[in-house]
Every structure is written in C-alpha cells, then in structure tokens.
C-alpha cells in the first residue's frame, strides 16, 4: 500500500545530468535559482527558460514526470499570478469598480508564474537525477567548511542518511500496525477528518515505541562496528570533478553573462 512511495523520486538513468557530480548539481541549482530571479525582461527570461528546457531534455527523464511535479504547485502559481495582475502600477487597460488591470500587472504575473515553474522544474531535475544518498553525501561535503563554526556537519549528514534508510522500514511497519489494529476491530476509514486523525493514535503510539527500540538497537549495532563520530572516518566513495563538471560550470557562467548583458542593454519591464 503506502510501501510503494518512492522517496526522493530518484529515476535511474545514465544521462549527462545523472553523471554530473552531485556537489556541482546542488551549487548549480542554487545559482540557477538566483539567475531565474535576476531576469527583468523577456529576452533574459527566454534565455533562462531555454536553458531549463535544455537541462530537462538532457536529463532524459520523461516529460510527464516533470508535469506531475508541477501539479503540486499549480494552485500556488495561479494564486500568486492572480494577485500580481492586480498589483501592477501604471495605466490601467481594464477597469471595473476597484479592480484595475494594467499591462505591467500582466507582465508581473507572467514573470512570477514562469519563475516558479522554472524553479520547480530545476529542483525536480535535481531529485530525479540524484540518489538521496548522493544528495546527503554532497550536502555533507559542501557543508564541511561550516565545521569551523562548530556546526556538527558529520552528525547532520549521518542523521539524514539514517532517516532515509528507515523511511521504507517505518512505512512497512506502519502498514503492519494498521493491519494489526484493524484485525482487532479498529475503525480507521469512517467518520470525518477529526475522527480519522483520532483513529491514528493506536497506530502512532506503537510506531513510536518501535522506532525508539530500533534506534537503540541501531546505536548498539553502530558501536559494534566501531562508530565513534566523524573524526578519523574515511569514505569509500570519493567525489572527483570530471571534465563534464567543468563544462557544466563554464556553460552556466556563459548563461550568467548572457543574463547580465540583457539586463544592461535592454530596458527592464518590471
């Protein structure tokens, strides 16, 4: 039942995007998000959109997967663009009572919705093409400099790894407990929202108890395997920058230059 939830939505593949270093992917995603919000006219917006479409095509993930990820935010996009339509200043081209719609309002709406869509597409691309393990690994390595500030980087990464590892295990267990409680006559389907939530108590309590027991046993098992925190620990998989990674960085720099040039030489619309 709920066991089929694929966490992180990773889709195996051998595309260029799949093969990029996960660290680079995270850094580039952050950079692209900044680029998307630095577009102030249609040309730069078109450049960023084209780049996003290129990335999507390169990822080799079926387009319907991206559409699926957009479904979640469609309401947010509609609401924000609707609000933006009415917020544009300038001369109204349409007036009805207190509702005034101006050209700049429409432009604003277009920009906001395209920006959100691009944002979602790019971040889905990251989770589609990177395994959760690679992601946590990359985050650990990217956050390493924060160690100077006494941020417990290794501990955070370890917690993320273990959480990811136990998501399917605990889902399976929830399933089992639900069946066990149903077999004892628990009613979880009928009634309103509040009643359904209340009916989850006999599932959640055993689940929590078992999660704590598992945590204790896992801690024992980890100690048995000589775990003693991050100091002196090595990793089997080391990440190395490949030519492909440098190419992606160079292309992104070109994109950035394009956007900057557009912003300098073309008048901002919003």
């Amino acid at each position: 039942m709920i066991r089929d939830v694929s966490f992180g939505q990773f889709m195996p593949g051998k595309s260029v995007i799949h093969r990029l270093d996960p660290r680079i992917k995270i850094v580039l995603l952050i950079a692209y998000i900044v680029f998307v919000f630095c577009t102030f006219n249609f040309v730069s917006l078109a450049i960023v959109s084209a780049a996003t479409i290129a990335v999507i095509l390169l990822s080799g993930i079926p387009f319907r997967m991206y559409v699926k990820s957009l479904k979640v935010v469609i309401i947010i996009v509609l609401i924000t663009s609707l609000l933006n339509i009415f917020y544009g200043g300038g001369d109204p081209i349409f007036e009805w009572g207190i509702i005034k719609i101006s050209l700049s309002g429409i432009y604003r709406a277009i920009f906001v919705s395209v920006r959100i869509v691009l944002l979602i597409l790019l971040s889905s691309c990251l989770t589609f093409t990177t395994t959760p393990t690679d992601l946590t690994d990359a985050i650990e390595r990217l956050m390493k400099p924060l160690k100077v500030l006494h941020v417990k980087v290794h501990e955070i990464a370890m917690m993320m790894t273990i959480a990811l590892r136990f998501v399917p295990t605990l889902l399976e267990e929830t399933d089992k407990i639900m069946s066990a409680q149903k077999a004892r006559g628990a009613d979880m389907e009928s009634g309103g929202f509040i009643k359904k939530i209340k009916a989850m108590t006999p599932v959640l309590i055993p689940l929590f108890v078992s999660a704590f027991r598992r945590a204790y046993e896992l801690a024992v098992a980890m100690e048995c395997r000589c775990y003693r925190g991050g100091d002196g620990r090595t990793r089997m998989k080391t990440l190395h920058m490949k030519p492909l990674d440098y190419v992606s960085v160079i292309l992104s720099c070109l994109l950035l230059t394009g956007i900057i040039l557009c912003n300098i030489f073309l008048a901002p619309i919003i």
Binding site: T133, T161, I162, R165, A221, R225, Y227, R235, M236, K237
Partner: peptide, 30 residues
C-alpha cells in the same frame, strides 16, 4: 558482533555503502 534483527543493523540505503560503514569508521583508505 552480528545481532538478531537484520533491519536494525543496516545503516545506509545502499548495500555496498552499508558494508563500507565498518571500515570507514576504522579510517581505512578508500
């Protein structure tokens, strides 16, 4: 020491990374 419940002994979400957990803790070369 190998314990009773196999589920509660595995640390990583990929088999080979889990097996690497012990040697990684010992600080062995990749």
């Amino acid at each position: 020491l190998v314990l009773q419940n196999p589920d509660n002994q595995l640390v990583a979400s990929i088999i080979e990374e889990d097996v690497a957990f012990g040697p990684e803790n010992l600080g062995i070369e990749p």
